[in-house]
C-alpha cells in the first residue's frame, strides 16, 4: 500500500524567521504515506486500547464500591 517507503522530513524551523511561508500547524497530510479506505482498515489497536480501558473501569469501580464505600465505618442503613 505504501506510496513511498522512505521520505525526507526536513526539520521545520521553530524560529519564526526560519519558517517557510505558509508554515502550518498540524499539516497532517504532509506525512501521509498511504491512503486507507474503510474496508482496508481494521482498528485493532483501538479495540485493544478500549478493552484495557474497560478492564480498568470495571476493577476500579469494584474497588471504589465494595472497599472504599461499603467498607466505611458509619454507613447509612435507612
Amino acid at each position: 500500500m505504501s506510496i513511498e517507503t522512505t521520505r525526507e522530513h526536513p526539520e521545520r524551523g521553530d524560529d519564526p524567521d526560519d519558517r517557510p511561508p505558509g508554515y502550518v500547524v498540524g499539516s497532517g497530510p504532509d506525512d501521509v504515506e498511504r491512503e486507507l479506505s474503510h474496508d482496508e482498515f481494521d482498528p485493532i489497536g483501538t479495540l485493544g486500547i478500549i478493552l484495557v480501558y474497560f478492564v480498568i473501569l470495571a476493577v476500579m469501580w469494584a474497588f471504589m464500591y465494595f472497599v472504599e464505600f461499603l467498607g466505611r465505618g458509619i454507613t447509612v442503613v435507612g
Partner: peptide, 12 residues
Amino acid sequence: TFTVEVDGPRDY
C-alpha cells in the same frame, strides 16, 4: 432523615 449504625467508641 437517615439512620446509621455506630460501632465502637470514637470521636468524629
